[in-house]
Amino acid sequence: MRITCPICGERDRREFYYVGDAVALSRPDPDDGDIAWDDYVHNRDNPAGVTRDLWYHEGGCGAWLVVTRNTVTHEVLQTELASDAKEAMA
């Protein structure tokens, strides 16, 4: 599997560390209640298809990335800096 780092370019998967669902970018407010926090901390879908995950370019530039990929075809559909993704959400 190859992942294109927005900074370094296309690199081997072994340079990257998988972190988890990109839901980590959507942290609820402290007052949002138990249900929102339960979802945020524990509840994850496990789709056969497109997922949006956080990866860390550990063996490269050290950037955090949001990688959109398909778990069925192993296609990497999109990569962006997590900081850009977070700013776009604001």
Binding site: R14, E15, G60
Partner: peptide, 8 residues
Amino acid sequence: RGHTVRTM
């Protein structure tokens, strides 16, 4: 020459 990488 002048190219660099951070890699493993």
